Amino acid sequence: TTYKLILNGKTLKGETTTEAVDAETAERVFKEYAKKNGVDGEWTYDDATKTFTVTE
């Protein structure tokens, strides 16, 4: 399944996708990605669109 991440950081904005077996796995991948890019904020997930959003 393809999951999407929307980054709404103070200095970094953008989108990325990952293939994962479930939302929990995708969330771990995306949180590591955000951490590596210095983005830390509020996380939300929309199951209907398989989209995570992190907003600083």
Rank of each mutant, 00 (worst) to 15 (best):
Gly14Glu: 14
Asp40Trp: 15
Tyr45Ala: 01
Thr25Val: 09
Gly38Lys: 07
Thr16Arg: 12
Val39Gly: 02
Val29Ser: 07
Ala34Phe: 03
Leu12Asn: 08
Ile6Asp: 03
Tyr3Glu: 00
Glu19Val: 14
Thr11Gly: 11
Thr49Asp: 05
Trp43Gln: 01
Asp40Lys: 10
Phe52Cys: 00
Thr51Met: 04
Phe52Trp: 08
Leu5His: 00
Thr1Val: 09
Leu12Gly: 07
Asp40Glu: 15
Thr18Asp: 03
Gly14Arg: 13
Glu24Val: 13
Thr11Arg: 12
Glu19Gln: 10
Thr51Phe: 02
Thr16Ala: 15
Lys36Asp: 09
Glu19Ala: 08
Ile6Ser: 04
Leu7Met: 14
Val21Gln: 12
Lys10Val: 13
Tyr45Phe: 07
Asp40Gly: 10
Thr18Tyr: 14
Ala48Cys: 08
Thr11Lys: 06
Thr49Asn: 09
Ala23Ile: 12
Glu24Arg: 10
Thr49Ser: 12
Lys10Phe: 14
Thr18Gly: 03
Tyr33Val: 06
Lys10Cys: 11
Thr49Val: 05
Ala23Cys: 08
Glu56Ile: 09
Asp47Met: 12
Thr53Met: 10
Asp46Lys: 04
Glu32Met: 07
Thr51Tyr: 03
Ile6Asn: 04
Lys50Ile: 02
Val21Glu: 13
Gly38His: 10
Thr2Phe: 14
Ala26Pro: 01
Gly9Thr: 12
Trp43Tyr: 03
Thr17Ser: 09
Arg28Thr: 09
Glu42Ser: 13
Glu42Tyr: 11
Asp22His: 04
Lys36Gln: 11
Thr51Leu: 04
Thr55Lys: 06
Thr17Lys: 08
Phe52Lys: 00
Ile6Ala: 03
Thr49Ala: 10
Gly41Cys: 02
Asp46Cys: 07
Thr44Ala: 11
Val29Ala: 12
Val29Arg: 10
Ile6Pro: 00
Glu15Val: 12
Lys10Ser: 13
Lys36Cys: 08
Asp40Ala: 11
Glu56Leu: 08
Val29His: 15
Thr51Asp: 01
Gly9Val: 09
Lys10Leu: 13
Thr49Arg: 06
Asn8Ser: 09
Asp47Arg: 05
Glu27Phe: 15
Gly9Arg: 04
Glu56Arg: 03
Thr2Val: 11
Glu19His: 10
Lys50Val: 03
Glu19Ser: 11
Asn37Leu: 15
Gly14Thr: 13
Asn8Glu: 09
Lys31Pro: 00
Tyr3Ile: 01
Lys10Trp: 07
Thr11Pro: 03
Asp46Trp: 04
Trp43Glu: 00
Val29Asp: 05
Thr55Val: 08
Val54His: 01
Asp47Glu: 15
Thr44Tyr: 10
Tyr33Phe: 13
Glu24Asp: 11
Gly14Trp: 15
Val29Phe: 15
Thr11His: 14
Arg28Leu: 12
Thr11Trp: 13
Lys50Asp: 03
Ala23Glu: 07
Ala34Trp: 03
Val21Gly: 10
Thr17Ala: 08
Thr49Gln: 07
Glu42Trp: 08
Lys50Trp: 06
Thr2Lys: 11
Phe52Tyr: 06
Thr17Glu: 07
Val54Gly: 01
Thr51Gly: 02
Thr44Asn: 12
Thr25Cys: 06
Lys36His: 15
Asp22Phe: 04
Glu56His: 08
Phe52Gln: 00
Thr53Gly: 03
Glu42His: 13
Asn37Lys: 14
Glu24His: 11
Trp43Ala: 01
Glu56Tyr: 08
Glu15Ala: 09
Leu12Ile: 14
Lys35His: 11
Arg28Asp: 05
Phe52Val: 01
Glu27His: 10
Tyr45Arg: 02
Asn8Trp: 11
Thr18His: 07
Leu12Val: 15
Ala48Leu: 14
Lys4Asn: 06
Thr51Ser: 06
Lys31Trp: 07
Thr18Val: 13
Thr16Asp: 03
Tyr33Trp: 14
Val54Leu: 09
Asp22Tyr: 04
Ala26Leu: 00
Gly9His: 07
Gly9Ala: 11
Gly9Pro: 03
Lys4Ala: 05
Glu19Ile: 14
Asn8Gly: 04
Thr53His: 07
Lys13His: 12
Asp47Cys: 05
Ala23Gln: 14
Thr17Trp: 14
Tyr45Thr: 01
Val54Cys: 06
Glu42Leu: 10
Lys36Gly: 07
Gly41Met: 02
Val21Asn: 13
Lys50Gln: 09
Glu32Val: 06
Phe30Leu: 05
Asp47Ser: 10
Thr16Phe: 15
Lys50Ala: 06
Glu19Asn: 14
Ala20Gly: 04
Thr55Glu: 07
Asp22Gln: 04
Thr1Met: 11
Gly41Gln: 02
Lys10Ala: 14
Lys50Glu: 03
Ala34Gly: 03
Tyr33Thr: 03
Val21Met: 14
Glu19Gly: 05
Ala48Trp: 08
Glu24Phe: 11
Thr51Glu: 04
Asp46Ala: 04
Leu12Pro: 04
Val39Glu: 02
Ala26Gly: 02
Glu15Ile: 13
Gly38Trp: 05
